[in-house]
Simulated assay, not measured.
Amino acid sequence: MTRRGVFFLCAAVGCGALWVVLGVQALSILALFFAACLAIALLAVVPIPRARRHRTAPLTLSAETTAPAVGAAYAVRASGELRRGLGTVVAAEWEIADNLAAPVRRIAPAHLGRDAPARRRARARTGTAPNSASPAASDPRGFSASLTIAHRSRGPASIRIIAAELHDPLGLVRRSMRIDQRISVLVVPQLLDGERLRTGGADGGDPGGAGDTRRLATNRDRVGLPGGDVREYLAGDPVRQINWKQSARQRELLVRLPEQESRRVVELRLDTDAAAYDTSEPFEHAVSVLATEGIRQLRAGNDVRLRSGAADPELCHTPSQLLRALALVRIDEAGTA
């Protein structure tokens, strides 16, 4: 029961006791009134046995991104149909499970999708049909809830909506309706700006270990054909591709080869030895430094070969591939290869 419900219960018991003691008929009417209100509230939120298994429909969970960065806030939304009888949904219970932290439960507001009268009148004037892709926007039973999250550690994480809290129309009784829907994301490293990249972290201290950008080893291998290569002229080659100067020196017709874009493979190494770091913070900063440098190289048109500890090197061609690989990097445990 809510506080109001407890008050109604105490009022019903008190009025009934006074009626028995004093014999005043008006007190019996008040006791029956408070008791009837409580009975109506209970019937509004307690499902009948016949419809219990159909009280909920599968909800759809969606996230703004499936690869959020550490510390970056994003929203997770739940929507669908909720068969809740006469009860009103007021809140939803969520559980956030980070990779390196215990699950945390949070309560966030929720609501049922009902068209506002002004919106219905506007649709009637313009003849616009309701959006069928958003059941919470037009269906009175449509359930909608959202939660803003910011993860503190890299790696796989899950967000689960556990239950919805229902109140009766009078606000006397509340009930928790179990939902249990889950969505998974992969938390990637946080990218550093220029100041934190130079100073070695948000606190301006010495990053230590492999967190220092000067410890990042790079190895550039040129691939592709260098510009200016030629070959012997073949029948059917365009005349504009003939290298006349080179042909005059060689005394034969030579054709320019098309220049291929020269790409470099930049190798970035990350030390995963636990002895190289005092705490986990320098290691996390080293991962962020590596991610920032790797993204810079990829945007410059280079490929990145990632080496972390004794793991096999991984060649990354896109920023998402690099960030997802770094999201799973861990410090070597003592005594392991």
Rank of each mutant, 00 (worst) to 15 (best):
V188W: 04
D221W: 00
T336E: 14
R240F: 05
F283A: 08
L82T: 01
A78N: 03
R214I: 08
G208M: 09
G227E: 13
K245G: 10
S262Y: 00
L112W: 07
G294H: 10
R174I: 01
Q250W: 03
A57P: 00
A17W: 13
P47W: 07
R251T: 01
Q250N: 11
A150V: 01
E259Q: 12
T199K: 11
G227R: 13
R83Q: 11
R50T: 12
T199Y: 06
S79A: 13
G309P: 06
F7P: 03
L216A: 13
R249C: 00
D273S: 14
S153H: 07
L30P: 03
Q25H: 12
F283Y: 05
G194A: 10
H151L: 12
A91E: 11
A69T: 13
V329H: 03
A164V: 11
A41T: 02
R77C: 02
T279P: 02
F33C: 05
A337T: 13
D168A: 00
I29R: 14
H54T: 15
R4G: 10
L59N: 11
F34I: 06
L326N: 04
R215Q: 15
L59F: 12
L322G: 04
R52A: 09
L100S: 14
V70N: 04
R50P: 01
Q241N: 13
L234N: 10
P207H: 08
A163M: 06
C15N: 12
D139I: 00
G204Y: 03
G87K: 01
G127P: 07
G205R: 12
R249T: 06
I295G: 07
V329F: 05
V239R: 06
V266N: 09
G301Y: 01
Q246T: 11
L254Q: 06
G127R: 05
K245C: 02
L32Y: 12
E195W: 05
A31Y: 10
P109A: 09
A164E: 05
A69D: 08
A150G: 01
E333Y: 00
G228R: 11
L322V: 08
A157V: 07
G87M: 02
I331F: 04
R299N: 15
R307C: 12
V287S: 01
S153I: 00
R178W: 09
G205C: 06
S144K: 06
R263S: 10
D273P: 02
R125F: 13
T272F: 03
A337G: 10
P140T: 06
P68I: 02
A150I: 02
R119S: 12
V265F: 09
R305W: 07
V187T: 08
T65Q: 10
V70P: 08
T128V: 11
K245Y: 02
G113N: 01
I107R: 12
A101H: 14
S176M: 14
R152D: 11
G208P: 04
D278F: 09
Q260P: 10
V90G: 04
I96V: 15
P156N: 05
R174D: 09
E333C: 02
L100R: 15
A300L: 14
L290T: 15
P258T: 05
G335V: 06
R141M: 10
A248T: 01
S288P: 07
G85Q: 06
P130Y: 07
D278E: 15
L147G: 02
